[in-house]
Each structure stands twice: as structure tokens, then as C-alpha cells.
Amino acid sequence: MNWITIAQVSDCPPGSSRECIAAGHIVALFNVDGQFYALDGLCPHQGGPLGKGRLTGCVVTCPWHGFQFDVTSGQHQTSKSLVHASFPVRVTGDEVQVGIEEP
């Protein structure tokens, strides 16, 4: 696993999200009550920017067509068969890092 710094802790305060790039991947970073989570940044519906979506509690709403995902698990909110890809996250000092699998 390759750990890549995508933000500083202060860049994504509790209740917010942001779009980041890590090793060519678009990553949607979320801060839920001080805990960080990361999903693939492209909504599986039509590629909307999940990192620019509205975060309510632990649910992000895609700004393009309203698809909703639990950011802690990637679970779609109405289709139990749809789980969106996520990345492991760790905080090292003031850096937020995501784990990218090496080929």
C-alpha cells in the first residue's frame, strides 16, 4: 500500500468535503465529526464530483443527480446492491493520507 498525502487536517473541517487527487485517482475526502473517510471521487451514475457534494451527517449527495452514499462504507442509500469504492484513510501529524494499492 502506498500512502499519499492529499490534504492537511485543517483543509477539511468537520462536516465538510473536498476533492483531491492521489496517484491519478480523483478522491472525495469527507470529515464526519473529526473522522476522515475517502470515496472514489466520481459518482458511479454519471461521473459527478462527489467531493463537491453536500455532506449531511455521514451521507453525501452527488451535486449532479442526487445519488446518496454513506461515506463511512460507500453504501448507496436506496440500492443495497451498490457499494461505491472507498480508500483507507489515516492521519499522520497534520497530514491526511489515503492508501492506494500498488499494481
Rank of each mutant, 00 (worst) to 15 (best):
W64N: 13
E19L: 15
V89M: 05
G15T: 10
V9S: 01
E95W: 04
K52L: 15
P49M: 09
L39I: 07
S10G: 08
T61Q: 15
V96N: 02
V9I: 14
A38T: 03
G48A: 10
E101G: 15
V96M: 02
P49T: 11
I4H: 08
L42F: 14
G74A: 04
K52H: 12
V60A: 06
H84A: 00
G48P: 10
Q35D: 12
Y37R: 00
T61H: 09
I100M: 06
G15C: 10
K52A: 14
F69G: 01
T5P: 07
G99F: 00
D70L: 00
D33I: 06
P103Y: 05
I26C: 09
P14K: 06
H65G: 09
I100K: 00
Q8R: 12
T72M: 15
S10Q: 13
G66N: 13
G48T: 09
Q46G: 12
H65L: 10
L29E: 00
D70H: 05
I4G: 07
G41R: 02
K52R: 15
P14S: 10
S17Q: 06
W64T: 12
T78H: 11
P13T: 07
F67N: 06
G48I: 04
F67H: 10
L29F: 03
Q46A: 13
V91T: 12
S10C: 11
G15W: 09
Q77Y: 01
C62N: 08
G66D: 13
Q75E: 06
N2I: 10
V60Q: 03
H65F: 08
D11G: 05
G47F: 07
G74C: 05
G53R: 05
